[in-house]
Amino acid sequence: MASADAATHDDHGHGNGKVPGALRGFLKDDHEWFYFQTWMILTGLFIISYIGPFIGEALHMFAITMVTAFGIAVVKAGLVIKRFMHLMDEPKFIWQMNATALVFILLFFFWVAPDVMSHEGANWGNQAGASITMTTHIEDFDPDVVWTERCATCHGEEGRGDGPAGTAIYPRPTDFTSRAYWATADHDIMATAILDGGVALGRSRYMPAFRTAFAAGHGGGHEGEVDTLPGERTEQLIARIMTFRPPPEAAPAPAPVAVPTREPTPTPTPEPVIDDTVALDGYGLIPGGEVVPAPAPAPTGPSEAELAARAQYIQGRVFN
């Protein structure tokens, strides 16, 4: 292919026999006519890539858009590189070094993408990334599908708080099969948690807010009109969650503070670093659902006074 093209290239030597008369004033020789032809091909390709999305939309085939967009971009790039930049006429190490740079970028893409694109795995989770994806707009709302796709990653398919991403979170996601939870939960608390996230309750910041996701319209971004859809959808989802509720016992366990999540922070200070330490101490690896005693310092651990001193120290270190 390269040689055939080089031949044409050479054919365009010096005369101007091939240049159409109308363009003689503008294009001085066949060489320039060759460039002009290339430009016309590029224009044609551009038009195809421009109308591609319209065809794709009309036929409901997104693949057409992708092919016309990126396939044609590659063809156009090839034409520019070959016919305008004359890459193939240079010694071959020139394209080799450019190709090497491209290979390194591909390497970068494929070895970074697993971390940036994916938000959960077998034993790990990228909660921040996942919560963003989880709150993407939902077009056709089905409580079962939403539970599986958006909730079960943390709360588990059975609602036990043991989803793959949930195992890495402290405090642990709520276990909906635990009686202790239902002793304190009510409809409003659940609705607030779903619509405005755990932060609205002063609980885990890993529980995302779904208000925008449930909203009508394009969702996300700037079009957050107030509508009734989020409320209705939340009701459906709460009904779905209620199916996990265990049957009430004859004598309910007396549970003073029985929510296995972080207590509300009274002061509105910006998320201090200490919070996590306290949360770890208090709720570390206790499986969700059991009645958790108030976070008392372990007997062998540092004393209360020492903890306070450390907290004060860290505070000083952060805000000095």
Partner: peptide
């Protein structure tokens, strides 16, 4: 910034690459 859809890991990759 992960709270708004960014990814701090991406910086680490860009930096260590």
């Amino acid at each position: 910034d992960p709270t708004a859809g960014g990814d701090p890991l991406l910086w680490q990759h860009l930096f260590w690459f």
